[in-house]
Amino acid sequence: MKKVLLQVENLRTYLTTHRGVVRAVDGVSLTILEEETLGLVGESGCGKSMLALSILGLYPKPQGRIVEGKIEFEGEDLVQKSEEELRRIRGKRISMIFQEPMTSLDPVFPVGEGIVEVLMLHQGLTRSEARREAIRLLRMVRIPEPERRMYQYPHQLSGGMRQRVMIAQALACRPKLLIADEPTTALDVTVQAQILELIAALKEEMKTAVLLITHDLGIVAEHCQKVAVMYAGTIVEKSDVFSLFARPLHPYTRALLGALPRLDGKRSRLEAIPGSVPDLIAPPLGCRFHPRCRERIPRCSEEEPRLREVERGHEVACHLL
Protein backbone atom coordinates (compact mmCIF):
# COMPACT_ATOMS: atom_id res chain seq x y z
CA MET A 1 0.00 0.00 0.00
CA LYS A 2 1.40 3.35 -1.02
CA LYS A 3 1.56 6.22 1.40
CA VAL A 4 -0.64 9.27 1.22
CA LEU A 5 1.36 12.18 -0.18
CA LEU A 6 -1.19 14.95 -0.35
CA GLN A 7 -4.54 15.17 1.33
CA VAL A 8 -6.83 18.08 0.64
CA GLU A 9 -9.75 18.30 3.02
CA ASN A 10 -12.86 20.38 2.56
CA LEU A 11 -10.89 23.19 0.95
CA ARG A 12 -12.64 26.48 0.19
CA THR A 13 -10.81 29.20 -1.71
CA TYR A 14 -12.84 32.35 -2.31
CA LEU A 15 -11.94 35.38 -4.37
CA THR A 16 -13.33 38.82 -3.63
CA THR A 17 -14.12 40.79 -6.78
CA HIS A 18 -16.06 43.99 -7.34
CA ARG A 19 -19.01 41.86 -8.43
CA GLY A 20 -19.03 39.77 -5.32
CA VAL A 21 -17.34 36.72 -3.82
CA VAL A 22 -16.36 34.04 -6.33
CA ARG A 23 -16.51 30.65 -4.70
CA ALA A 24 -13.86 29.13 -6.95
CA VAL A 25 -13.07 26.12 -4.79
CA ASP A 26 -15.98 25.22 -2.59
CA GLY A 27 -15.45 22.25 -0.36
CA VAL A 28 -13.01 20.04 -2.25
CA SER A 29 -11.43 16.92 -0.78
CA LEU A 30 -8.95 14.73 -2.58
CA THR A 31 -6.02 12.44 -1.91
CA ILE A 32 -2.92 11.75 -3.93
CA LEU A 33 -0.77 8.73 -3.07
CA GLU A 34 2.97 8.62 -3.67
CA GLU A 35 3.99 8.02 -7.29
CA GLU A 36 0.38 8.22 -8.44
CA THR A 37 -1.07 10.31 -11.26
CA LEU A 38 -4.40 11.93 -10.46
CA GLY A 39 -6.28 13.59 -13.30
CA LEU A 40 -8.43 16.58 -12.43
CA VAL A 41 -10.93 17.27 -15.22
CA GLY A 42 -13.44 20.00 -15.69
CA GLU A 43 -14.46 22.79 -18.01
CA SER A 44 -12.98 26.27 -17.93
CA GLY A 45 -13.99 28.22 -14.87
CA CYS A 46 -14.78 25.19 -12.75
CA GLY A 47 -12.04 26.06 -10.26
CA LYS A 48 -9.49 23.42 -11.14
CA SER A 49 -6.61 25.85 -11.61
CA MET A 50 -7.54 27.73 -8.46
CA LEU A 51 -7.38 24.43 -6.58
CA ALA A 52 -3.85 23.86 -7.89
CA LEU A 53 -2.77 27.38 -7.00
CA SER A 54 -4.23 26.97 -3.51
CA ILE A 55 -2.02 23.95 -2.87
CA LEU A 56 1.09 26.05 -3.51
CA GLY A 57 -0.27 29.20 -1.87
CA LEU A 58 -0.10 30.95 -5.24
CA TYR A 59 -3.72 32.07 -5.46
CA PRO A 60 -4.09 35.80 -6.21
CA LYS A 61 -3.58 37.95 -3.14
CA PRO A 62 -5.15 39.85 -1.52
CA GLN A 63 -8.38 39.02 -3.43
CA GLY A 64 -8.09 35.33 -2.75
CA ARG A 65 -8.10 33.56 0.56
CA ILE A 66 -8.51 30.06 1.87
CA VAL A 67 -11.53 30.36 4.12
CA GLU A 68 -11.67 26.78 5.26
CA GLY A 69 -9.95 23.45 4.93
CA LYS A 70 -6.65 21.67 5.19
CA ILE A 71 -3.94 20.82 2.67
CA GLU A 72 -1.82 18.14 4.25
CA PHE A 73 1.42 17.40 2.41
CA GLU A 74 3.69 14.75 3.92
CA GLY A 75 2.01 15.35 7.23
CA GLU A 76 2.29 19.17 7.28
CA ASP A 77 -0.63 21.53 6.76
CA LEU A 78 0.30 23.93 3.97
CA VAL A 79 -2.56 26.30 4.78
CA GLN A 80 -0.88 27.19 8.07
CA LYS A 81 2.55 27.81 6.53
CA SER A 82 4.09 31.25 6.26
CA GLU A 83 5.11 32.65 2.88
CA GLU A 84 8.75 31.98 3.74
CA GLU A 85 8.08 28.34 4.58
CA LEU A 86 6.06 27.88 1.41
CA ARG A 87 8.89 29.32 -0.65
CA ARG A 88 11.14 26.55 0.61
CA ILE A 89 8.60 23.94 -0.47
CA ARG A 90 7.76 25.37 -3.90
CA GLY A 91 10.04 24.15 -6.63
CA LYS A 92 11.68 21.74 -4.24
CA ARG A 93 9.09 19.37 -2.90
CA ILE A 94 6.13 20.50 -4.98
CA SER A 95 6.59 22.02 -8.46
CA MET A 96 4.20 23.24 -11.03
CA ILE A 97 4.15 23.57 -14.80
CA PHE A 98 1.70 25.87 -16.47
CA GLN A 99 -0.30 25.92 -19.65
CA GLU A 100 1.50 28.58 -21.66
CA PRO A 101 5.27 28.34 -21.32
CA MET A 102 5.65 31.65 -23.13
CA THR A 103 4.05 33.55 -20.29
CA SER A 104 5.53 31.50 -17.48
CA LEU A 105 9.18 31.76 -18.54
CA ASP A 106 10.81 35.12 -17.98
CA PRO A 107 11.40 36.71 -21.40
CA VAL A 108 14.43 38.73 -20.31
CA PHE A 109 16.51 35.82 -19.01
CA PRO A 110 18.09 32.94 -20.92
CA VAL A 111 16.05 29.79 -20.32
CA GLY A 112 18.88 28.04 -18.50
CA GLU A 113 18.93 30.79 -15.91
CA GLY A 114 15.64 29.68 -14.36
CA ILE A 115 17.00 26.19 -13.80
CA VAL A 116 20.29 27.52 -12.40
CA GLU A 117 18.36 29.71 -9.98
CA VAL A 118 16.26 26.82 -8.70
CA LEU A 119 19.34 24.69 -8.13
CA MET A 120 21.30 27.43 -6.36
CA LEU A 121 18.37 28.33 -4.14
CA HIS A 122 17.17 24.89 -3.12
CA GLN A 123 20.25 22.72 -3.43
CA GLY A 124 22.90 25.27 -2.51
CA LEU A 125 24.97 24.57 -5.61
CA THR A 126 27.50 27.10 -6.87
CA ARG A 127 26.77 28.78 -10.17
CA SER A 128 29.14 26.60 -12.16
CA GLU A 129 27.86 23.39 -10.58
CA ALA A 130 24.31 24.52 -11.24
CA ARG A 131 25.14 25.22 -14.89
CA ARG A 132 26.51 21.73 -15.37
CA GLU A 133 23.46 20.27 -13.70
CA ALA A 134 21.13 22.43 -15.82
CA ILE A 135 22.74 21.10 -19.00
CA ARG A 136 22.22 17.58 -17.75
CA LEU A 137 18.56 18.34 -17.01
CA LEU A 138 17.99 19.88 -20.42
CA ARG A 139 19.49 16.78 -22.00
CA MET A 140 17.17 14.67 -19.85
CA VAL A 141 14.11 16.44 -21.28
CA ARG A 142 15.58 15.75 -24.73
CA ILE A 143 16.51 19.22 -25.80
CA PRO A 144 19.10 18.98 -28.57
CA GLU A 145 22.34 20.92 -28.05
CA PRO A 146 21.59 21.89 -24.43
CA GLU A 147 24.93 23.73 -24.06
CA ARG A 148 23.80 26.23 -26.68
CA ARG A 149 20.05 26.21 -25.97
CA MET A 150 20.51 27.09 -22.33
CA TYR A 151 21.74 30.55 -23.27
CA GLN A 152 18.82 31.25 -25.61
CA TYR A 153 15.78 33.29 -24.68
CA PRO A 154 12.22 31.91 -24.52
CA HIS A 155 11.17 33.57 -27.80
CA GLN A 156 13.92 31.71 -29.64
CA LEU A 157 12.44 28.33 -28.71
CA SER A 158 9.34 26.63 -30.10
CA GLY A 159 6.31 25.97 -27.87
CA GLY A 160 7.28 22.34 -27.37
CA MET A 161 10.87 23.27 -26.46
CA ARG A 162 9.66 25.89 -23.98
CA GLN A 163 7.46 23.34 -22.29
CA ARG A 164 10.46 20.99 -22.05
CA VAL A 165 12.42 23.75 -20.34
CA MET A 166 9.55 24.24 -17.89
CA ILE A 167 9.59 20.53 -17.14
CA ALA A 168 13.36 20.51 -16.59
CA GLN A 169 13.00 23.46 -14.25
CA ALA A 170 10.12 21.85 -12.35
CA LEU A 171 11.90 18.54 -11.91
CA ALA A 172 15.33 20.00 -11.10
CA CYS A 173 15.01 19.20 -7.40
CA ARG A 174 13.23 15.86 -7.85
CA PRO A 175 9.97 17.02 -6.22
CA LYS A 176 7.59 14.55 -4.63
CA LEU A 177 4.63 16.15 -6.36
CA LEU A 178 4.37 17.74 -9.78
CA ILE A 179 1.30 19.82 -10.55
CA ALA A 180 0.78 20.09 -14.30
CA ASP A 181 -1.93 22.61 -15.18
CA GLU A 182 -3.05 21.98 -18.76
CA PRO A 183 0.57 21.37 -19.81
CA THR A 184 -0.23 20.63 -23.45
CA THR A 185 -3.30 22.71 -24.20
CA ALA A 186 -1.28 25.31 -26.11
CA LEU A 187 0.55 22.68 -28.17
CA ASP A 188 -0.22 20.76 -31.33
CA VAL A 189 -1.24 17.11 -31.08
CA THR A 190 2.04 15.66 -32.31
CA VAL A 191 3.99 17.84 -29.86
CA GLN A 192 1.43 17.13 -27.14
CA ALA A 193 2.11 13.42 -27.53
CA GLN A 194 5.86 14.04 -27.12
CA ILE A 195 5.41 16.12 -23.97
CA LEU A 196 2.98 13.70 -22.33
CA GLU A 197 5.30 10.76 -23.02
CA LEU A 198 8.16 12.75 -21.54
CA ILE A 199 6.24 13.58 -18.36
CA ALA A 200 5.22 9.92 -18.00
CA ALA A 201 8.80 8.69 -18.46
CA LEU A 202 10.32 11.17 -16.02
CA LYS A 203 7.62 10.57 -13.46
CA GLU A 204 8.47 6.87 -13.58
CA GLU A 205 12.18 7.57 -13.25
CA MET A 206 11.94 10.10 -10.43
CA LYS A 207 9.04 8.46 -8.59
CA THR A 208 7.11 11.70 -8.59
CA ALA A 209 3.37 11.90 -8.05
CA VAL A 210 1.52 14.03 -10.61
CA LEU A 211 -1.64 16.10 -10.35
CA LEU A 212 -2.60 16.49 -13.99
CA ILE A 213 -5.17 19.17 -14.66
CA THR A 214 -6.86 19.01 -18.03
CA HIS A 215 -10.14 19.39 -19.84
CA ASP A 216 -9.28 16.54 -22.19
CA LEU A 217 -10.75 13.21 -21.12
CA GLY A 218 -8.53 11.45 -23.64
CA ILE A 219 -5.41 12.60 -21.82
CA VAL A 220 -6.87 11.44 -18.52
CA ALA A 221 -7.66 8.00 -19.92
CA GLU A 222 -4.14 7.56 -21.20
CA HIS A 223 -2.03 9.03 -18.45
CA CYS A 224 -3.81 8.87 -15.10
CA GLN A 225 -4.53 6.15 -12.58
CA LYS A 226 -7.24 8.10 -10.81
CA VAL A 227 -9.64 10.84 -11.84
CA ALA A 228 -11.58 13.57 -10.09
CA VAL A 229 -14.28 15.36 -12.08
CA MET A 230 -14.87 18.93 -11.02
CA TYR A 231 -17.91 21.06 -11.71
CA ALA A 232 -18.53 24.62 -10.51
CA GLY A 233 -16.08 24.50 -7.62
CA THR A 234 -16.94 21.06 -6.32
CA ILE A 235 -15.88 17.52 -7.06
CA VAL A 236 -18.78 15.49 -8.40
CA GLU A 237 -17.10 12.15 -9.03
CA LYS A 238 -13.87 10.45 -7.99
CA SER A 239 -12.68 7.06 -9.06
CA ASP A 240 -9.93 5.02 -10.63
CA VAL A 241 -9.67 5.61 -14.32
CA PHE A 242 -10.99 2.25 -15.51
CA SER A 243 -14.23 2.29 -13.58
CA LEU A 244 -14.86 5.97 -14.40
CA PHE A 245 -14.75 5.35 -18.13
CA ALA A 246 -16.47 1.97 -17.91
CA ARG A 247 -19.21 3.13 -15.55
CA PRO A 248 -19.46 6.92 -15.26
CA LEU A 249 -22.06 7.47 -12.55
CA HIS A 250 -22.60 11.21 -12.17
CA PRO A 251 -24.93 12.68 -14.82
CA TYR A 252 -22.35 15.40 -15.51
CA THR A 253 -19.57 12.91 -16.18
CA ARG A 254 -21.87 10.93 -18.43
CA ALA A 255 -22.96 14.07 -20.25
CA LEU A 256 -19.35 15.14 -20.70
CA LEU A 257 -18.45 11.80 -22.24
CA GLY A 258 -21.56 11.93 -24.44
CA ALA A 259 -20.70 15.40 -25.69
CA LEU A 260 -17.32 14.26 -26.94
CA PRO A 261 -16.91 13.58 -30.65
CA ARG A 262 -15.43 10.07 -30.76
CA LEU A 263 -13.06 8.47 -33.20
CA ASP A 264 -14.06 4.99 -32.23
CA GLY A 265 -17.83 5.33 -32.26
CA LYS A 266 -20.24 6.02 -35.06
CA ARG A 267 -20.79 9.59 -36.07
CA SER A 268 -24.22 10.26 -34.68
CA ARG A 269 -25.61 13.44 -33.23
CA LEU A 270 -23.70 14.57 -30.14
CA GLU A 271 -25.45 14.62 -26.78
CA ALA A 272 -24.99 18.30 -26.01
CA ILE A 273 -25.38 19.56 -22.45
CA PRO A 274 -27.91 22.40 -22.48
CA GLY A 275 -26.95 25.79 -21.05
CA SER A 276 -23.50 26.79 -19.92
CA VAL A 277 -21.25 26.65 -16.87
CA PRO A 278 -22.77 28.57 -13.92
CA ASP A 279 -21.41 31.77 -12.44
CA LEU A 280 -19.48 30.97 -9.29
CA ILE A 281 -20.57 34.19 -7.59
CA ALA A 282 -24.08 32.85 -7.23
CA PRO A 283 -23.93 29.14 -7.97
CA PRO A 284 -27.25 27.27 -8.16
CA LEU A 285 -28.59 26.06 -4.84
CA GLY A 286 -28.54 22.37 -4.08
CA CYS A 287 -26.63 20.34 -6.63
CA ARG A 288 -24.77 22.80 -8.85
CA PHE A 289 -25.42 20.76 -11.95
CA HIS A 290 -29.18 20.50 -11.47
CA PRO A 291 -30.23 23.29 -13.90
CA ARG A 292 -28.49 21.42 -16.74
CA CYS A 293 -29.20 17.89 -15.57
CA ARG A 294 -31.59 15.66 -17.51
CA GLU A 295 -32.27 13.42 -14.55
CA ARG A 296 -32.97 15.96 -11.84
CA ILE A 297 -35.47 15.31 -9.10
CA PRO A 298 -37.01 17.94 -6.79
CA ARG A 299 -34.48 17.23 -4.07
CA CYS A 300 -31.61 18.32 -6.36
CA SER A 301 -32.49 21.99 -6.13
CA GLU A 302 -32.90 21.91 -2.37
CA GLU A 303 -30.06 19.94 -0.89
CA GLU A 304 -26.43 19.79 -1.87
CA PRO A 305 -25.40 16.17 -2.47
CA ARG A 306 -22.33 14.93 -0.63
CA LEU A 307 -19.59 12.79 -2.10
CA ARG A 308 -20.35 9.19 -1.12
CA GLU A 309 -18.63 5.93 -1.90
CA VAL A 310 -21.06 4.15 -4.20
CA GLU A 311 -18.79 1.35 -5.25
CA ARG A 312 -15.38 0.40 -3.90
CA GLY A 313 -13.11 3.36 -4.61
CA HIS A 314 -15.76 5.13 -6.66
CA GLU A 315 -17.26 8.24 -5.05
CA VAL A 316 -20.15 10.23 -6.48
CA ALA A 317 -22.04 13.31 -5.32
CA CYS A 318 -25.54 12.75 -6.66
CA HIS A 319 -28.96 12.26 -5.08
CA LEU A 320 -29.92 9.61 -7.61
CA LEU A 321 -27.44 7.11 -6.24
Binding site: V191, A193, Q194, F242, F245, L263
Partner: peptide, 23 residues
Protein backbone atom coordinates in the same frame (compact mmCIF):
# COMPACT_ATOMS: atom_id res chain seq x y z
CA UNK B 1 1.38 9.92 -36.86
CA UNK B 2 -1.33 12.54 -36.39
CA UNK B 3 -3.98 9.90 -35.75
CA UNK B 4 -1.77 8.04 -33.32
CA UNK B 5 -1.09 11.20 -31.35
CA UNK B 6 -4.72 11.77 -30.39
CA UNK B 7 -5.48 10.77 -26.81
CA UNK B 8 -8.40 8.34 -26.82
CA UNK B 9 -10.92 8.62 -23.96
CA UNK B 10 -10.79 4.91 -23.24
CA UNK B 11 -8.25 3.64 -20.70
CA UNK B 12 -8.35 0.08 -22.05
CA UNK B 13 -7.35 1.19 -25.53
CA UNK B 14 -3.76 0.23 -26.35
CA UNK B 15 -2.11 2.11 -29.15
CA UNK B 16 0.91 1.46 -31.25
CA UNK B 17 2.76 4.65 -30.54
CA UNK B 18 4.51 6.49 -33.30
CA UNK B 19 5.50 9.71 -31.60
CA UNK B 20 6.92 12.13 -34.12
CA UNK B 21 10.19 13.77 -33.33
CA UNK B 22 10.82 17.48 -33.44
CA UNK B 23 8.61 20.41 -34.31
Amino acid sequence: ALFESIPVPNPTYKRKRMVLEGD
